[in-house]
């Protein structure tokens, strides 16, 4: 990990203002932000460690734990909400046996909610990695999950 980190960080020596792009690039490389990576970012930029974490933990994009191979994001946008997003979330939680924010034991799925994926006309919808599954009903959830290979 260290080598990958130094490569990502090399253009950013002393660049305090670039903290958010740095965090984004490091997460893109490693998948999440382990403490060691944040310490390294602090050293590179000259920012206090606490500040790196302060900024990273403020934004929804950043994760501090390893994730599943696939991410399911249940949209909780307004349009999805009035069309039953809550039931979709509950059904997804039931189908996966985890709650929002958790990763399945086999590390296949991480389940999250998202403020809005902007597919309001297709509500309610979920996003599995880059694919949007639209106009869902609770019973479609398990069908979709069952139908997905690795």
């Amino acid at each position: 990990m260290h080598e990958r980190l130094s490569e990502v960080l090399s253009p950013y020596k002393g660049r305090r203002d670039a903290l958010i792009p740095i965090l984004q690039n490091v997460q893109a490389e490693i998948g999440y932000l382990p403490d060691e990576a944040m310490l390294e970012i602090a050293k590179t930029t000259g920012l206090p460690e606490s500040r790196v974490y302060a900024v990273a933990s403020f934004y929804a994009q950043f994760r501090f734990k390893p994730r599943g191979r696939h991410t399911i994001m249940v949209c909780r946008g307004t349009a999805c909400h009035v069309r039953g997003a809550e039931k979709i979330l509950e059904e997804t939680e039931r189908a996966l046996g985890i709650v929002e924010g958790e990763t399945t034991e086999d590390k296949k799925y991480t389940l999250e909610t998202v403020a809005c994926i902007g597919c309001c006309a297709l509500a309610p919808c979920i996003m599995i990695d880059e694919d949007v599954e639209a106009k869902l009903t609770p019973k479609m959830v398990s069908e979709i999950l069952d139908g997905r290979a690795e």
Partner: peptide
Amino acid sequence: NINAIDYAQR
């Protein structure tokens, strides 16, 4: 000037 602590989360 130590910055041991800061705000976290939101």
